[in-house]
């Protein structure tokens, strides 16, 4: 019975302790909230003044702000606000905000946090350095582009691009961790805002032993239409990894030549289903009448679900596709007859 009694007393004490802690924390939170509310007005006003200040006008910090800016919570609070403003507004206005950031010596906090042991503080500091374009952080940021924590890593990669533009992609030379699909999307979005520039490293990245770097380089070729790399992309259609091949298929179609369709048909047979679907999707975009013949050939060899896709491709490439399909042998038998009647209705609507 000792165990029961022990448990009994422990649980009673513990629930009492919890009760007290809860009350304490909720009180502390309430106070924090009230404090934030009063800071809110102050900082909004300050930021607005800086945001819309005329050129070369110097705005003094008020005594109150000077006093407050000695405390850490306030510094974090205003830093957050400045970051939001810089992300929303552009042009002359952000230059003023950078002045404010430096005036409040928030860059020193950023420096301190960028070496912090807590990953999220470190990642946030690196992100802030990128958004504020603090040049002296270049080395710290570059060092962290291959950090083992994925958020620190990706935030460093983004920050490097924000800091030095396309040259920032130099991290692709050194990273050993894969870039996930999600972060590839994020990086491409970041690059889209910049003016297209020279892509020095692409040839090197296409030969990387990090597969995600190859895929990302292929995505760059595709999204920026880099016609110079046609032959390199073509070579990757034979890569042993199917995901690399898939991206090569998609990228080569963005920079396509007359011979592209033939090249894609050449690899069609060996590819897995996903890649086959991708090839068909790309070919339907070319609208090249020369592709009809090989497509008709494929129509007879593939399984039903691919047959539908091939038939659809034929129709998008050729306006009289349905007539062509109806002439095929087996057009009256299942499954081709169902496919044809479905396509007929879809084109009518």
């Amino acid at each position: 019975m000792y165990l029961l009694n022990l448990l009994f007393f422990l649980s009673l004490y513990f629930s009492a302790i919890l009760l007290v802690t809860m009350v304490f924390f909720s009180y502390a939170n309430k106070r924090k909230k009230n404090r934030y509310l009063s800071w809110d007005k102050e900082t909004n006003h300050l930021i607005n003044e800086y945001l819309f200040a005329e050129k070369n006008r110097v705005i003094e910090l008020s005594e109150n702000v000077k006093e407050l800016s000695k405390t850490k919570p306030f510094r974090d609070f205003i830093a957050k606000k400045i970051i939001i403003a810089v992300k929303t507004f552009s042009g002359e206005t952000t230059r003023n905000l950078k002045k404010l950031y430096l005036l409040l010596k928030l860059n020193e906090d950023t420096l301190y946090n960028s070496k912090h042991v807590f990953w999220y503080l470190k990642a946030r500091a690196i992100r802030n350095a990128g958004i504020m374009k603090l040049d002296n952080f270049h080395d710290i940021i570059f060092e962290n582009t291959n950090h083992k924590n994925d958020l620190i890593r990706i935030e460093s990669q983004i920050a490097l691009i924000r800091l030095i533009g396309f040259d920032g992609l130099k991290f692709l030379n050194i990273i050993t961790y894969p870039i996930s699909e999600w972060y590839q999307i994020v990086l491409l979005k970041e690059l889209k805002v910049l003016d297209p520039d020279h892509f020095k490293g692409i040839k090197f990245w296409l030969k990387s032993y990090n597969k995600s770097v190859i895929i990302f380089a292929l995505k760059l070729i595709g999204s920026f239409h880099l016609f110079d790399f046609y032959t390199d992309t073509q070579k990757l259609l034979q890569h042993k990894n199917k995901k690399v091949r898939l991206q090569a298929i998609q990228s080569i179609s963005k920079i396509f030549k007359e011979t592209t369709a033939t090249e894609l048909f050449a690899i069609f047979d060996k590819e897995p289903i996903e890649n086959k679907t991708a090839i068909l999707k790309e070919i339907s975009k070319f609208k090249d009448p020369n592709t009809i013949e090989p497509l008709l050939k494929l129509l007879h060899s593939e399984n039903p679900s691919l047959k539908t896709k091939i038939a659809k491709t034929i129709i998008t490439v050729d306006k009289n596709g349905i007539a062509l399909l109806e002439k095929q042998s087996g057009a009256n038998a299942h499954p081709l007859n169902t496919i044809i009647s479905q396509l007929k209705e879809e084109t009518n609507s």
Partner: peptide, 15 residues
């Protein structure tokens, strides 16, 4: 929804 941007726009437009 962001109060800073809201106040900035209000400030600018009132100008």
């Amino acid at each position: 929804d962001d109060n800073l941007i809201r106040s900035a726009l209000e400030f600018r437009l009132k100008k």
